[in-house]
């Protein structure tokens, strides 16, 4: 018997390091800078009926340099107010962000009347890239 460990024992460790290396150093990208949220038809009717169920998420997370443009589309047949803007039926509204911060908006599509847009800094460092990829994977999995 030899005292040297066999090479295959290291294989999982090498694989993990390879994945971490890719996740930490490969450029991050998304298909579009627009993060689309659609206000579905019937939203106003549900609000008027006292429906408290949130149709859209109360918090939207954007990342500078990646998906840093909020694109709202009103598919309802009633105007919806988002911050200082009124979206008539069928209209869309693009709001680009240039500074990492938490932004609160009045939003009639939400039962609470409020929506928060959390804009995060672009992931540059390896650890930030890994964290961004893990979160994207998790959110896509649970969406």
């Amino acid at each position: 018997m030899s005292g040297k460990p066999r090479a295959w024992i290291y294989a999982p460790l090498i694989a993990v390091l390879a994945v971490l290396g890719w996740a930490g150093f490969a450029p991050v990208s998304v298909p579009s800078r627009d993060e689309l949220f659609e206000i579905p038809k019937g939203t106003y009717a549900r609000r008027m009926a006292g429906d408290k169920v949130e149709i859209l998420p109360s918090q939207i997370r954007l990342t500078l340099g990646l998906n840093d443009v909020l694109l709202l589309r009103n598919l309802d047949d009633v105007p919806q107010v988002f911050g200082p803007t009124i979206l008539m039926p069928g209209q869309s509204f693009r709001l680009p962000f240039a500074k990492a911060a938490s932004y609160d908006f009045a939003c009639t599509a939400h039962a609470s009347g409020q929506m928060t847009v959390l804009v995060e800094a672009e992931p540059v460092m390896p650890w930030a890239k890994i964290r961004w990829r893990v979160r994207e994977w998790w959110e896509n999995r649970t969406r």
């Binding site: 200082p84 009124i86 009045a106």
Partner: peptide
């Protein structure tokens, strides 16, 4: 809903003030 609609002299809907 509690926003205030701002309508200009010509009747155009210009802004919504939350």
């Amino acid at each position: 809903s509690s926003s205030i609609y701002m309508i200009d002299r010509a009747g155009g809907l210009k802004a919504v003030m939350p």
